[in-house]
Design a protein around this nucleic acid. Structure first.
Lengths: 230, 230
DNA sequence: CCTACCGATCGGTAGG
DNA sequence: CCTACCGATCGGTAGG
């Protein structure tokens, strides 16, 4: 802090440059959710925010730096869209369910235009060892840990059978939600989310205790005729 | 068939050009499992098979044509790696379990160097409406239908409770296997597949009947300490 | 934050 | 199946 003058409102507000930077990063995250972090081109990004390529390079020294910053922005978006709302629910089973619903809704609402930023970018980098892959692995590890933590919380309150393995339960919940999200992107059928909800409710039901609040009603997904195999 | 001369062995064997074509396509599928169908460049592919770009274009008129052909090749690879072996198991619950194991093993063995071709390519195209996305949607539909069909078969033989929804069951099985596969690519921990197996066995167990053959023993996955959230 | 440029690589083609 | 090339676009830079 080499600021001689006293703080004014103007000093505390984000500078114009910082606002531009955030605009660029949010656009970058949106584009990367469709094209991937490599497929995102600086030229297209510049066009999307109405700037020149040179203008972008005054905010980021390299494409890689922009990619890393876009990941942080996407992380903040997920936090606001999924984790913050869930934290508003009462602790225990209700909060766990709110987290599931929030994560489902995040996919269904297409908070990012190309579906989940991390789903797309994760698939893009998962076969290439390196910093980006490790970063994504760590973020997904964190996601699983969040869900597992909520399971433990519900168990601690006696609202969920203590014998269930929280990590295993988190794995299964996230699995059905992400599978639904992928199928939804491919065929635009939101019914896949009904399957995810149904699977989660059925998995939790045998674990309920007399202390458990009631689970919301989850209708059985509509039957569907099978298609031909590959 | 505008062939005047009688068939000889030579006529029935694949021509040299056809063999080259297959070599190119298998290399293309391998590369696309890492880089995606767009990320795959004709120059890199030519280098991988030891040909010039011009040489490749004598087999395929355009990149798009090559992409479509590579999808068919990848489909044949999955058929040989997953569906054919499962068909060798006795019908019913055993065959369903063999299909699960085959699908898990296909991911764990990395039949494609970048993990599942369709997982990677699906994520790449799922946000872009068009022929490729529709093709992938149809293929995944077929995968789900295969699993659902095996569930129905087991039910028909009385080896699985008839009240279970085959499509829902297929959805949940595929979900945990694919989630395990994605995590495996990110952190190289094959333990995720143990979680998938455990989830499938636990899901099937309440559906077993007195006619059911015994399920293989599936050990509970090792406990794992939670990491920090995002 | 812009214009104007760099070398490299992209998909694709001509001609053999 | 090759060499030699095309225009377009890539990430990135210089200079202002």
């Amino acid at each position: 802090m080499n600021q001689a003058t006293p703080n004014t409102l103007r000093d505390l507000l984000p500078s114009k440059g910082e606002l531009t930077r955030q605009t660029i990063l949010r656009a970058a995250a949106d584009l990367a959710s469709i094209e991937g972090l490599e497929g995102l081109s600086i030229g297209d990004l510049a066009k999307a925010v109405g700037m020149s390529k040179g203008g972008l390079y005054s905010h980021f020294g390299s494409k890689r730096e922009l990619q890393l910053a876009a990941i942080e922005t996407a992380r903040a978006v997920v936090r606001e869209a999924v984790f913050v709302p869930a934290a508003a629910a009462p602790p225990g089973l209700k909060r766990l369910w709110a987290l599931c619903e929030g994560y489902i809704s995040y996919h269904e609402r297409k908070v990012f235009p190309g579906g989940c930023f991390f789903g797309n970018v994760g698939a893009e980098v998962d076969a290439k060892a390196g910093t980006l892959r490790d970063k994504l692995a760590q973020l997904y590890n964190g996601l699983h840990a969040r869900f597992a933590g909520m399971v433990r919380e519900a168990q601690g309150l006696g609202e969920l059978d203590a014998s269930a393995d929280p990590v295993q339960l988190a794995f299964e919940i996230i699995a059905v939600i992400r599978e639904a999200a992928r199928l939804f992107l491919l065929d635009d059928d939101a019914g896949h989310f009904a399957r995810a909800r149904f699977a989660i409710a059925a998995r939790l039901r045998p674990l309920l205790t007399e202390k458990s609040p009631a689970l919301p009603d989850v209708p059985a997904p509509a039957a569907k005729e099978g298609a031909a195999g590959p």
